[in-house]
């Protein structure tokens, strides 16, 4: 078990390193000049060279990468002289646009994205698994068909369309909710939930539809297993058969997708956050794109990869808890 964990952590580090390298390459090799972006529109050649040296762009690529990597673990000083900026551990770079280290920016926005992701996840799990399991148990009935047609339709709606329609219907026409703005959970729990309700719904609808389709399939498969027949032959009440024997194995495959989805969303739902104007990582990312703030783009990418890889590891470890046949 310990050995397995160590191996996995090592692999995790390897994957992150590879992703960092690829990301780094893309940003520093593709035909854009971060220096020109940082320098601004009216920029003399001398000044550009200065900025270049300041950003370390005159050094060979591998050296820049090495600096970037060591910076993550030890922190580093960017630039020299009077413009020098101290970027502490863990240094993912420095956003000149915001005059803040990327790490601080990310940590500042993370609660918003995490609130959005976790809230939506709860909602979509309830909706999606509920619909999927109901449909599976009533396979081939009208209920099943209605739920599945609804799920396919909902999965086909682009999230920006749903979001805009929700804003239009709930906020503009019905006036039920204020236009979302982020409230901190600890300071104002009700305001937090109320303001996030629409973004949660918009995001959850899409995922719920996908989960309904997935969970229906795996639940049908699970309920066709011979051990379900055994449970019935033992005279277990149908409820117990479904809940204790069917659900546990039927929901296991869902775990894998859930890990990936939640991991991916933690680092920001770009479209949803932009439409609802939530100051999360996704919007930070989008803003950084518009202003060519490459350290931030790089930082968000790495953070997102980190979440996905960690989520995968957690899922794999959970499998061993759920399924006794999996042993490390």
């Amino acid at each position: 078990m310990i050995l397995y964990l160590l191996r996995r952590l090592l692999a995790l580090a390897g994957v992150l390193l590879a992703i960092a390298a690829v990301t780094f390459l893309i940003f520093y090799v593709l035909p854009t000049d971060p220096a020109a972006a940082a320098c601004g529109k009216t920029c003399s050649p001398e000044r550009l060279a200065d900025v270049r040296a300041y950003l370390g762009l005159d050094k060979p690529l591998w050296e820049q990468f090495a600096h970037f990597l060591t910076g993550i673990f030890t922190g580093r000083t960017l630039g020299t002289g009077q413009y020098a900026v101290q970027c502490d551990f863990p240094c993912l770079g420095y956003s000149y646009e915001n005059s803040l280290p990327v790490w601080d920016l990310l940590m500042d926005r993370l609660p918003v994205s995490a609130s959005l992701a976790f809230g939506a996840a709860v909602l979509w799990l309830i909706l999606g698994l509920g619909a999927g399991v109901t449909a599976a148990l009533r396979k081939d009935t009208a209920t099943d068909k209605a739920l599945m047609v609804g799920a396919v339709a909902a999965a086909s709606l682009p999230v920006y369309f749903t979001s805009v329609m929700l804003i239009y219907g709930v906020i503009r026409i019905a006036g039920l909710l204020p236009y979302p703005s982020y409230h901190e959970l600890t300071a104002d729990p009700l305001g937090w939930a109320g303001n996030l309700l629409l973004p949660w719904t918009a995001l959850a609808l899409l995922y719920a539809a996908m989960y309904a389709r997935q969970s229906r399939g795996s639940m049908i498969e699970a309920m066709a297993e011979p051990y379900i027949r055994t449970a019935r032959a033992k005279g277990m009440p149908e409820r117990t058969v479904v809940v204790k024997h069917g659900l546990r194995s039927g929901m296991t495959p869902i775990l894998t997708i859930f890990g990936m989805d939640l991991g991916g969303l933690l680092a920001g739902a770009v479209i949803t956050e932009s439409i609802f104007g939530l100051p999360g990582i996704g919007r930070l990312f989008y803003g950084a794109l518009v202003s060519s703030d490459q350290p931030v783009v790089l930082g968000v990418t790495l953070l997102a990869a980190f979440f996905i890889v960690v989520a995968n590891l957690v899922v794999d470890l959970l499998y061993a808890v759920i399924d006794p046949r999996v042993r490390y």
């Binding site: 990301t23 593709l30 035909p31 991916g264 990312f285 997102a304």
Partner: peptide, 22 residues
């Protein structure tokens, strides 16, 4: 395959598309 699947694909696509200009 594992490596490619670990990439945050949407974010990565956005990033790649935004840096490549012409």
């Amino acid at each position: 395959m594992d490596l490619t699947m670990s990439f945050p694909s949407l974010i990565f696509m956005i990033a790649m598309l935004s840096v490549a200009k012409d």
